[in-house]
Simulated assay, not measured.
Amino acid sequence: MAMTIQAWKVETAALLKGAGLEGTPDLDARLLLQQVTGFDQAKQILFFDKVLTDAQLDSLTSLRKVRLSHKPMAYILGRREFYGRDFQVDERVLIPRSDTETLIEAVLAFAKNKTDTPSIIDVCTGSGCIGITLALELGSAVTLTDLSEGALAVARENARRLVSRPLTFLHGDLLSPTDKKYDIIVSNPPYLTASWCDEVAFEVQWEPRLALEGFSLDGLELIRALVAQSLDHLAAGGALFLECDYRQAETVKQLLVSSRFTNVRIEKDLAGRERVVWGVLACTNS
Rank of each mutant, 00 (worst) to 15 (best):
Leu270Asn: 04
Arg275Tyr: 05
Pro25Ala: 08
Lys50Ala: 01
Arg209Asp: 11
Gly279Glu: 03
Ile120Met: 10
Arg97Met: 06
Ile45Leu: 12
Trp206His: 13
Gly78Cys: 07
Leu16Phe: 01
Ser259Ile: 13
Leu281Cys: 10
Ala109Ile: 09
Glu105Val: 09
Arg275Pro: 13
Cys129Leu: 08
Thr133Leu: 12
Glu157Ser: 06
Ala111Asp: 11
Leu217His: 13
Ala249Tyr: 07
Asp269Tyr: 04
Glu105Ser: 14
Asp116Pro: 05
Ile266Trp: 09
Leu134Pro: 01
Arg224Val: 07
Ala111Lys: 08
Leu170Phe: 09
Val186Lys: 00
Tyr75Thr: 09
His233Glu: 14
Thr102Pro: 07
Val252Asn: 06
Arg30Tyr: 03
Glu213Ser: 02
Asp116Gly: 02
Glu207Trp: 08
Ala14Cys: 12
Tyr75Ala: 14
Arg265Cys: 14
Ile185Leu: 15
Ala249Glu: 02
Cys124Val: 00
Ser258Gln: 15
Val51Ala: 12
Leu226Phe: 10
Leu222Cys: 08
Arg209Ile: 11
Ser164Ile: 01
Ile5Phe: 08
Thr251Asp: 12
Arg92Lys: 09
Val200Phe: 08
Ser59Gln: 15
Val252His: 00
Gln34Gly: 11
Thr12Val: 12
Arg260Asn: 15
Thr115Met: 09
Val93Ser: 07
Phe47Asn: 00
Leu256Thr: 13
Leu212Glu: 11
Ala141Leu: 13
Leu240Trp: 07
Ile120Asn: 12
Asp232Met: 15
Gln41His: 12
Lys50Asn: 06
Ala155His: 02
Leu15Thr: 01
Arg67Met: 02
Leu31Lys: 10
Val154Phe: 10
Ala155Met: 14
Ala211Ser: 07
Glu221Leu: 13
Ala211Leu: 13
Leu242Glu: 01
Phe202Met: 06
Leu217Met: 04
Arg224Gly: 07
Asp269Met: 11
Leu27Phe: 03
Asp58Trp: 04
Leu94Ser: 06
Thr133Cys: 06
Leu33Asp: 03
Phe47Leu: 03
Leu31Tyr: 03
Tyr191Gln: 14
Thr53Arg: 10
Trp8Ser: 11
Gln44Val: 03
Ile95Asn: 08
Leu77Tyr: 02
Asp218Trp: 00
Ala271Glu: 05
Ala228Val: 15
His233Pro: 03
Val51Lys: 04
Arg85Ala: 03
Arg92Ala: 05
Glu81Met: 05
Cys197Phe: 11
Thr12Leu: 01
Arg273Gly: 04
Thr102Arg: 09
Phe39Pro: 00
Leu103Thr: 06
Asp49Lys: 13
Ile132Leu: 05
Thr178His: 11
Ser286Phe: 14
Glu203Asp: 02
Asp183Met: 10
Asn263Tyr: 15
Glu213Ile: 02
Phe261Ile: 00
Lys253Tyr: 08
Val36Arg: 04
Met3Tyr: 00
Glu11Asp: 14
Leu63Phe: 02
Arg30Pro: 00
Phe241Cys: 01
Leu234Cys: 06
Lys43Ala: 11
Gln248Asn: 01
Phe169Asp: 15
Met73Lys: 10
Tyr83Met: 13
